[in-house]
Design a protein around this nucleic acid. Structure first.
Length: 543
RNA sequence: GGCCCGUUGGUCUAGCGGUUAGGACGCCUCCCUUUCACGGAGGAGACCACGGGUUCGAUUCCCGUACGGGUCACCA
């Protein structure tokens, strides 16, 4: 288990080089590599985390690991209406499955607990800060009704004005006006008073200096009418309070970044470094979302992906170690991870390449890892549910996995022999089901093309099966070599030039298919009893 | 529409002023071989979006244009 080398109590006034200008500083890379890092992963529990969300978490994790820093998780649940029960658990489960390690969070506490904004709000943590802003004149109460705001937006749209709230009547309303509105019992929101005529600079670690004209940035709501803070407010206050050194988040946040830097400015706080990572796009070029299908992180677990493979693959979208390296362990990525390797442009999620990578990871599994991995997979109820759903319906997988599951329980030794035979032929764990099914069923399903090709009009096949049945009868086991000798003997006696004409029909009789593991390996595992039965049944199908 | 960001083969990318523009996925061919797969060897595929500069020299630096993306909520 990874433990931060840095003591938590070292969080405090940050050294000069952690200012957002750190990129401009002449400090050599070696010095930067030792910089103190505290990063947060701040998801909102409004829906199942998808691969894009988890990639951000992965970046946080690798960055923190690389610098022996701290990663913490903070749940941004300030929108009560949109908070979905159970999602918080799913988020934690997703990042845990991805192999991410965090040192502080809602599940494990930490020096800055609580790590859930609804709880922080309940403790009154944000109150003094909003009061400070109100007192310093950097925030104001606005009493507009939703209808009025709608009207404003329509007006702006029609007149092609910049959209947004640029003050209305409340930005500079007199104390009396505000007081009388309050006396009427109206519930205001509190908005940040953005500066006018100023250039707001966001120092982004990937893009460098990004400028925004403050006149074009509207006044964001800080506190909603129900008293809850918005993301803009809560996240920045918390990032300051929790000692965040780097805000690693999706590129979709970049346009609200000037609001965030201004907030830090208004408080007189030293801002963290912003790192806006590029979005992940679907094949259609648009930001990855549910409608692209197969984006939910845990669906990949159900679909048979190895977490390390998925993690490896998605961190490579938008990040590269700088050479030709691609297949990298979590450790290797952590040690190679530098912000400089982050890409500014969005990347497309290529499911084919993911499959290739997953196949690589499956092949790299040791015999014991193979067994434990597949065993855990087939006993996971998520799997059947996933492949029974309408979008992913695959009966072959469902039944194959069920076969494997009961085989694990009833004849583990047999399964252990079977699995390695398909290891280099599958690209997902799910494929083990259909691929291995023939080992476990009483009667194999015959592929029509296979029987047509090898069971029809091939005079030597009948005698071949008889030969094998005769050779197998009375045996308890038949080794790879013995099986091969048997087939070879038939080939020699009948003047067949190659092994093929004997091998292929035998394979079809035994497995029902034309593709699969080496015939003799598979025969050894199958054993004489099963083979004799199958050979006899196949004999009856010859034409 | 405003603002912001981006642009190297279909996709992920290396490159950080001078390269036959490298690798990976996918695709094709061949080899290995009892099939499939793995593995190995090749191949097709990029006028480095376009147009201007700067420079002895630009994929690399600067400016435009085009195209793509992001964002414009009392959501995050």
């Amino acid at each position: 288990m990874y433990a931060p080398k840095r003591k938590l109590d070292s969080v405090g006034p940050r050294p000069f080089f952690l200012s957002s200008n750190w990129l401009d500083s002449p400090l050599p890379g070696t010095f930067r590599a030792r910089m103190f890092v505290r990063v947060r992963y701040a998801p909102s529990p409004t829906g199942s985390p998808h691969v894009g969300n988890i990639r951000t978490a992965l970046f946080c994790h690798f960055f923190a690991r690389h610098h022996d820093g701290v990663m913490f998780v903070r749940i941004e649940d300030t929108d009560r209406a949109r908070t979905v029960p159970g999602v918080e658990e799913e988020i934690l489960e997703s990042i845990r499955w991805a192999g991410i390690e965090w040192q502080e969070g809602p599940d494990k506490g930490g020096p800055f607990a609580p790590y859930k904004q609804s709880e922080r709000q309940a403790q009154g943590i944000y109150q003094p800060y909003i009061d400070e802003l109100l007192n310093s004149g950097n925030a104001y109460k606005a009493f507009d009704t939703p209808e009025e705001l709608d009207e404003m937006r329509q007006y702006q749209q029609i007149n092609k004005k910049p959209f947004g709230y640029f003050g209305g009547v409340w930005r500079d309303a007199s104390a009396e006006t505000v007081a009388s509105a309050e006396a009427e019992g109206k519930r205001p929101v509190i908005r940040l008073k953005m500066p006018r005529g100023k250039m707001l600079v966001v120092n982004d670690a990937i893009r460098g200096r990004v400028e925004f004209e403050s006149d074009l940035v509207d006044d964001p709501v800080l506190i909603k009418a129900d008293g809850m803070p918005t993301y803009h407010f809560a996240a920045m206050v918390d990032d300051h309070l929790m000692g965040t050194t780097h805000i690693i988040r999706g590129e979709e946040w970049i346009s609200s970044a000037p609001k965030h830097v201004w907030l830090f400015e208004a408080f007189g706080w030293n801002p963290p470094v912003f790192v806006h990572v590029p979005v992940i796009k679907g094949k259609d070029g648009a930001k990855l979302s549910k409608r692209h299908g197969d984006t939910r992180m845990l669906d990949y677990r159900a679909a048979g992906y190895i977490p390390d493979a998925l993690a490896n693959f998605i961190t490579l979208i938008g990040w590269a170690p700088g050479g030709d390296r691609e297949i990298m362990s979590m450790e290797e990525i952590a040690s190679a991870f530098r912000l400089e390797g982050l890409q500014p442009s969005p990347g497309v999620f290529d499911a084919d390449k993911l499959k290739w990578m997953n196949g690589n990871y499956i092949r790299a599994l040791s015999p014991s890892e193979l067994i434990s991995t597949v065993s855990a997979y087939v006993s996971n109820p998520e799997v059947a549910a996933y492949f029974s759903s309408e979008e992913h319906k695959d009966d072959a997988v469902v039944s194959g996995v069920a076969l494997l599951r009961s085989a694990f329980a009833e004849r583990p030794d047999y399964v252990h022999q079977v699995l390695p035979l398909e290891q280099e032929r599958v690209t997902t764990l799910a494929e083990f089901g259909p691929a291995c099914a023939f080992f476990f069923v009483d009667e194999v399903d015959f592929d029509e093309k296979a029987t047509e090709k090898w069971f029809v009009g091939q005079a030597h096949v009948g005698p071949l099966f008889d030969h094998l049945i005769a050779g197998l009868t009375g045996k308890n086991a038949a080794s790879h070599e013995e099986c091969k000798a048997m087939v070879q003997e038939f080939v020699d006696k009948n003047g067949l030039e190659k092994l093929g004409p004997a091998v292929h029909p035998t394979r079809v009789a035994l497995t029902g298919k034309t593709a699969g593991p080496g015939l003799f390996e598979l025969m050894e595992v199958l054993g004489p009893a099963r083979m004799i039965k199958r050979l006899q049944r196949a004999k009856g199908m010859l034409k």
